[in-house]
Design a protein around this nucleic acid. Sequence first.
DNA 1: CGCAATTAAGTTGTGCGCAACTAGAAAGGG
DNA 2: CCCTTTCTAGTTGCGCACAACTTAATTGCG
Lengths: 142, 142
Amino acid sequence: MVEPTGLEQMVCFQLYAASRAMTAIYRPTLDTLGLTYPQYLALRVLWHRGPTTVRELGTILDLDSGTLSPLLKRLENQGHVRRTRGTEDERTVVIHLTEQGSALRTKAADLPAQVACAVDLTDDEFAQLHHLLGKVRASTTL
Amino acid sequence: MVEPTGLEQMVCFQLYAASRAMTAIYRPTLDTLGLTYPQYLALRVLWHRGPTTVRELGTILDLDSGTLSPLLKRLENQGHVRRTRGTEDERTVVIHLTEQGSALRTKAADLPAQVACAVDLTDDEFAQLHHLLGKVRASTTL
DNA sequence: CGCAATTAAGTTGTGCGCAACTAGAAAGGG
DNA sequence: CCCTTTCTAGTTGCGCACAACTTAATTGCG
């Protein structure tokens, strides 16, 4: 290690820089769909889970209502989702995909493959990276 | 993998989530110093390199002037740095540490160790992670 | 039951990131 | 030497993240 900066520091910075670099790969395609990366993540959850409360989205994406509320409002204004009060528990707000929001799924279908191509890692390396990032998240969440 | 989401996607999300989780570890200590994580990164560069132009900082941190200009202005308002026009090339702005800014270095000295402790990875795993993140950054920067 | 404690979502305020643009200085070619 | 092109910072605008707070609904304990 040539840097006199300390390894953990570098890992943290690498994490910070790599995360931004990765989302930058998504940006051009997401731009054509009129989506940001966090909006895309929220839609993915809805595509896979169906109707989901704000709280559940927050747990899955590790985001709070301060981030999600305005984000979901923008998705609603764009016509991709609808927000309805939960019937059983009126504190909750359930997010539903609209037809338009569901249709986006096929339009965004080839995004993961694009990204996998752009990033020069083998399947093994992807798996390793995934494993290590999981450990980082696990040790920090506790 | 129970998720039907595709590995690259998950890696990207893991990257995004792990990066935020990592900076969250720094936050409590940085709060006591009155710094944000990006401000801390900028100061690290100055601690190691001495006077540095905005452009050089941008290259090292992979940030543009739209991010750095206001960040550095805040660091100047806090008394940690001074900004002076370059003498040879008057387009450039050189960032200098003040006494106070240099003094912060010792106060932040034990931060990396704290973080290394908080994250449950072996030295080998840190090295692996560092290597893989480097590859991600390299393949995306090109 | 009644009421305090908890919980869900939203709001406000601050600081990034990043795109798009501006102002001003330097470089370079005719 | 002038003028276009390039380059450095800075500004503006938007959308996250996140802390702190508000509102309203639910829980649960005496």
